[in-house]
Amino acid sequence: MSLLSFLLGEKKKTAAVAKERLQIILAHERSGSRAGQPDYLPALQRELVAVISKYVAINPADLKVSLERQDNLEVLEVKIELPDGGR
């Protein structure tokens, strides 16, 4: 070990720095609730069922709400299976 590297400290290799940064990003992504899904989705789903039920009789299990990340966008997807006859 040279005196200069001892005084200045050894620089980390680029791959090690990139790996460390990736681990930080992954830890941040994983720290979100329920695999990255926001806390408000279950409440949003219940409220949608309540509003739609005012106009059409639906089974709460027939409504699915999900949030997907695509590049820099978040896409909220709502799937509703409506009965044939309605109310």
Rank of each mutant, 00 (worst) to 15 (best):
58 I>L: 14
43 A>I: 11
82 L>Y: 15
70 Q>S: 07
17 V>I: 15
8 L>R: 12
84 D>P: 04
16 A>F: 01
36 G>H: 06
45 Q>C: 10
3 L>N: 12
7 L>H: 04
63 L>M: 03
53 S>R: 02
72 N>I: 15
30 R>W: 02
17 V>A: 06
25 I>K: 14
3 L>A: 10
66 S>E: 05
83 P>T: 14
37 Q>C: 00
25 I>L: 11
29 E>L: 12
61 A>H: 04
42 P>E: 06
86 G>L: 14
51 V>F: 09
74 E>Q: 13
84 D>I: 15
54 K>H: 09
3 L>C: 02
87 R>M: 10
25 I>S: 06
36 G>N: 04
76 L>Y: 07
1 M>C: 09
51 V>N: 11
46 R>L: 09
35 A>I: 14
74 E>L: 13
57 A>Y: 08
63 L>V: 15
67 L>Y: 03
6 F>H: 09
34 R>M: 08
23 Q>E: 12
49 V>G: 01
34 R>A: 09
57 A>T: 15
12 K>H: 07
47 E>N: 10
48 L>D: 02
54 K>V: 02
10 E>H: 07
52 I>Q: 01
16 A>P: 00
66 S>C: 03
14 T>A: 10
69 R>T: 15
74 E>D: 07
22 L>E: 11
68 E>N: 11
56 V>R: 10
69 R>D: 10
63 L>G: 01
15 A>L: 12
1 M>W: 00
39 D>R: 09
45 Q>N: 10
15 A>S: 12
37 Q>V: 11
44 L>H: 04
4 L>M: 05
18 A>C: 03
26 L>Q: 14
82 L>A: 12
9 G>H: 01
42 P>F: 00
44 L>K: 03
30 R>Q: 11
67 L>M: 13
43 A>M: 06
2 S>W: 05
34 R>L: 13
32 G>T: 03
7 L>F: 07
19 K>R: 13
79 K>A: 07
2 S>I: 04
74 E>R: 13
2 S>F: 07
84 D>V: 15
75 V>N: 08
12 K>D: 10
10 E>F: 13
8 L>E: 11
68 E>A: 14
19 K>I: 03
74 E>W: 09
60 P>C: 03
61 A>C: 02
39 D>M: 08
73 L>Q: 15
37 Q>P: 02
23 Q>D: 12
8 L>D: 06
51 V>W: 05
63 L>R: 02
54 K>D: 13
26 L>E: 14
72 N>H: 10
12 K>N: 09
20 E>W: 01
44 L>R: 01
58 I>W: 02
22 L>F: 07
15 A>M: 05
34 R>N: 06
38 P>L: 07
9 G>P: 03
75 V>W: 10
40 Y>C: 12
25 I>M: 06
39 D>F: 00
11 K>S: 11
3 L>Y: 10
30 R>L: 14
34 R>Q: 03
58 I>F: 04
82 L>W: 02
40 Y>A: 06
18 A>V: 13
61 A>P: 00
60 P>H: 05
24 I>E: 08
55 Y>M: 08
52 I>S: 03
69 R>F: 01
70 Q>A: 08
68 E>Q: 12
40 Y>R: 04
18 A>T: 08
65 V>T: 12
2 S>E: 12
8 L>W: 04
2 S>D: 12
21 R>T: 10
24 I>H: 04
72 N>C: 03
11 K>E: 14
16 A>S: 13
59 N>V: 03
10 E>V: 15
54 K>A: 09
